Simulated assay, not measured.
Amino acid sequence: MPLGTLDGTPPPFFRQGPSALSKLVFFSVLALFLMVADARFDVMQPLRAGLATVLYPVQWLVMRPVVWTQGGAQYFESLKASQTSEEAARSKLALQSQRANQVEQLILENTRLRQLLDLRDRVTTSSLAAQVLYDAADPYTRKVVIDRGVLDGVVAGSPVLDEAGVLGQVTRVYPMVSEVTLVTDRDQAIPVLNTRTGARGVAFGDPALRASALELRFMAANADVQAGDLLTTSGMDGVYPPGLPVARVEKVERRMDSAFARITCLPLALVSGVGHVMVLKPLTAQVAPRPAAEPAPAPARKGLRK
């Protein structure tokens, strides 16, 4: 092949366009122009909006893991905060409930103390306020222990009242505490007076019938006793002052095979759950002692003359 027929131009691989400096200057000027035009005339806003619309699904998919991670973290944080708030609310509710119960108990205790003070004003004998500490350990008796004893002037046989009526009698006295036998104890008896008829009787504790019941014994079957009659102390025993409320008749059973009626009474005093009581001096301590008998004159001796 003759040499003159050969193409002397370089192949495309070795062809070179504008220089790098020319390209740098051109694109710099173009960029500056576009920036000025976009700042003045917003010529790139449609392009920017179109690119944002096209790229939004890609952006949404890329952001999903980040959003899910943040949502999970916020869920667990909110769950923990909710559990903490719930525990705090439960604790506050329990505390408020406890305070409400204490307030109700204090109101009830205050009411009973006021009634006890009113009863104290009506009783003419000297009295001493006391608080019930606990019930006696013997399950076969009805006794309580109060916080007053010999050091406070309590003596055996002293009547014990609450705000409603006669509660019992002091049976044992210790230096700082005393034991009170309740009127419902099976070995306890108290002379009573029916305020409606004026009939006297004796009320005995009868726990065999009911833990908080009394029985008015030795009343004739035809005695005038009705349900609802009020029984008060008669003062015949020298222990209880007369006129103190004791019990109210609940039921009267008249049996043909017995000469006595079976009369069940309910004590007016709070024999179960009493908190504060009043201790009176027994009537025997208030009655003046019997005067001593005068000695008889000595008989005159026989055979003596003046």
Rank of each mutant, 00 (worst) to 15 (best):
E215I: 09
S126E: 11
A73C: 03
S234T: 07
T9Q: 14
R148H: 05
L280Q: 01
V36P: 01
Q96D: 13
L209K: 05
E294P: 02
A211Q: 12
A137L: 11
G72L: 11
V132H: 03
A247T: 01
A203H: 01
L304I: 08
A220F: 06
P289C: 13
V252T: 05
D118P: 02
D206C: 08
G243L: 07
S85I: 09
T141W: 02
R217W: 05
A213P: 01
L161M: 14
T233I: 02
L108G: 07
L106K: 05
D147V: 07
S158T: 10
H276E: 08
D42S: 15
D152P: 02
H276W: 07
V177G: 00
K251S: 07
P242R: 04
V145K: 04
S97N: 15
P241M: 07
T233H: 01
V155W: 05
V170A: 04
N101M: 10
A137I: 09
A296S: 11
A81L: 11
A73D: 05
G165R: 00
T195P: 02
A88T: 04
D162S: 03
L30N: 02
V277N: 00
D42N: 14
R305I: 15
A261F: 03
D257F: 09
F33T: 12
Q45M: 15
E104L: 13
P295K: 14
V192L: 05
D121H: 15
A298L: 06
E294H: 10
P175T: 04
P12T: 09
S85M: 13
S126R: 12
A300L: 15
A49N: 13
F33L: 15
P12E: 09
E163R: 05
S78Y: 04
Q98D: 14
A37T: 11
T195K: 13
P267L: 06
A203S: 09
D187L: 14
A223W: 03
E250V: 12
L21Q: 04
A100E: 07
R48F: 10
D138N: 10
T125P: 01
N194S: 11
G149K: 06
Q226R: 15
P139F: 06
L93I: 06
S158V: 07
A223N: 06
T84G: 11
D7P: 00
P175Y: 05
V123N: 07
A220Q: 11
P159T: 03
G4D: 10
A288G: 08
G165Q: 00
A189T: 06
A130Q: 02
V177H: 02
A164N: 15
V173C: 11
F218P: 00
P291H: 13
A211E: 14
K23Q: 08
A300F: 10
L270D: 00
L230H: 04
Q16A: 15
T141L: 05
